[in-house]
Design a protein around this nucleic acid. Structure first.
Lengths: 339, 339
DNA sequence: TTTGGCACTCAGCGACCGCGAGTGCCAAGT
DNA sequence: ACTTGGCACTCGCGGTCGCTGAGTGCCAAA
């Protein structure tokens, strides 16, 4: 009973603080939520919650504010689901359906997610590690410059320009192209290295340097760029917090400029299904101590290929954001499956 | 004589204001620059400059601040060139030389430009309109889904996924691929439409829908995406202005999220050679009234292919930024030529 | 365990004030 | 015709002061 009410109080505090962005006091609490008790009772509960570390006072004689721990409890045990409305769902689907290629899907997704959550959105390109190579193309841009293009079944296209040690005759090029296709087409990305390693041996000595250059380019593309790309959108929402909220936007913007950090944010989504939430300092990344990160994985067929999510202030609307991220991830999965 | 000194005063005001970010008064002016006259004289000049609209007072009894018009005069007639130091030049070249493909060149350029100017950087991908098609590839992703890839001589790779009305036999695909290559390879992008328009006629009626889908995809890629992509970096610098400068960052961030706007910013670079500067409200774009945009075109061979530049507050270091933008544009041109 | 009462704290707000940087104007000097 | 020192004036900024009110903690009674 008493434990139960305390949790109700915490929930009420979180909800009020999220909507008003102001410390919430005992009196306001009983007025806005119909907990059937007096402010004094609530005060006792609040004192207890503060002892346990779930809420804090910015200064004496101010209302309470949830701590990271408080948000954590709220997310884990208190927040209901807040499903999207049918019109919202329809709008999402329609918007994503209009995408013409993978780049378009990604950029539409990030814009969509930023718009409906009113937060900074991150979307990772489908991982290549489990994709299969559909086709390899080798085109001469000049006598010594080649471009290697790898087309992946997810619709992703990887490219790389190589400078060859010397001019490459068309015959060598055609030969190499044919062998590359034979060696790689249908292979998963992670098995590419072994398939390609002895390719060099089939060539005469003169061609070896060129072949070597191409092969190492392919290897680099396959290893270095595995999960490389993350697109980002909605940074303008960061500036929306009417100035001087406990959030300084410069470090956040700086952190978000680093691809590596974006990948960390998305990559550590351990939960295979469902939505992952990291709150405030739970987040190991410097500059993002005052933000929460909500991510979900999306899938192609039956296996997860990448993640997407949003970054926002710790005092965000968790239920709403979580269901939005979840929904968008599902729709992206669906789009990828259709294709 | 008197006219000359007035200009010197304006220059001094701009320089001081840019470095201190505080309104500058007559006394401070004579102390920091050795204009050989008394504060009172300077006051007269300042009053004249204010009448002419080059400077303004934020409020009575404060120093003066340059107006957009003042900056304009400064840029047009007063600012010297501030060449980069040899180590800087070397660092730029070295950093850009390490790029492995076009995407890499673009992303390195934007990071570089943001870093050395400490401002938001924009870099446009090379325009396709004057590029020539190097190769076309057509790959089946599934029985009814194709991916069309166009490889351009600048190293840019365009792709698009198409849903075909029905299954496409490999023979048709090979035929179509061959004809596409024959029709397009070596063509400039702008001449693609005419080369491709009667391609459909060579096919039997059954294949027509597929061919049609592919041809229209090619047309769309060629027309819609002509100059589409702009990459953006260094937005964190926006937040650096120690809070509450006459610059609200939210509208700026919002504007910078729109590709269309980025293209406008870069696209209106009229000056074929050299650096274009647009100051404050000279800039027609909503949200960017308090920012200046400095752009330069870069070239491949002897013709300009696209622009790059930076966006910053009107009180920026114009000479330094202009020479940085200029230098980076030249180095990018050089990199593109080498390739 | 809840509740009303009560004393206490303290951030925020507005009023007030003095300082000083900066100005405009003027009359005298060059 | 400029320049310059002098001088009165303006007014933003920063600090102090006091009040108000929201909010608290504690206690004694229900």
């Amino acid at each position: 009973m008493l434990e139960e009410r305390r949790l109700a109080v915490l929930r009420a505090i979180v909800e009020d603080y999220v909507s008003t962005h102001e410390p919430v006091g005992s009196k306001a609490l009983v007025e806005r939520h119909n907990l059937g008790v007096s402010p004094a009772t609530i005060r006792n509960d609040m004192a207890a919650l503060e002892d346990e570390g779930f809420i804090a006072q910015p200064h004496t004689s101010a209302g309470r504010v949830p701590t990271d721990l408080g948000y954590r409890l709220f997310v884990d045990r208190l927040s209901g689901v807040k499903p999207l409305s049918p019109p919202e769902r329809r709008a999402i689907q329609q918007f994503l359906d209009e995408a013409v290629d993978l780049d378009d899907v990604m950029s539409r997704t990030v814009r969509l997610l930023a718009q409906i959550t009113r937060q900074v959105a991150l979307v990772q390109y489908p991982s290549l590690s489990r994709s299969t190579v559909r086709h390899v193309e080798l085109v001469a841009l000049s006598s010594t410059r080649l471009i290697v293009v790898i087309i992946v079944d997810s619709g992703r296209v990887e490219q790389r320009i190589i400078e060859c040690p010397g001019p490459v005759p068309e015959s060598t090029l055609a030969d190499l192209r044919a062998r590359l296709i034979a060696a790689l087409a249908g292979r998963t990305f992670s098995s590419v290295p072994e398939s390609v390693v002895d390719l060099e041996e089939g060539f005469i000595l003169d061609d070896r340097p060129t072949v070597h250059a191409v092969v190492s380019a392919v290897l680099e593309m396959v290893t270095e760029r595995l999960d490389e790309r993350v697109v980002l959108g909605g940074t303008a929402h960061l500036a929306r917090y009417g100035e001087s909220f406990p959030i300084a936007i410069q470090p956040v913007l700086e952190a978000l400029e680093e691809q590596v950090i974006l990948l960390q944010l998305l990559g550590e989504a351990t939960t295979p299904q469902g939505v992952t939430v990291r709150i405030g300092h739970e987040n190991p990344i410097e500059g993002l101590e005052a933000t929460s990160v909500i991510t979900a994985q999306y899938a192609r067929g039956d296996r997860a290929v990448a993640s997407l999510g949003v970054v926002g202030p710790t005092h965000m609307d968790y239920p709403g954001t979580m269901s939005a991220v979840h929904a968008v991830a599902r729709y992206v999965s669906r789009i990828l499956d259709e294709q």
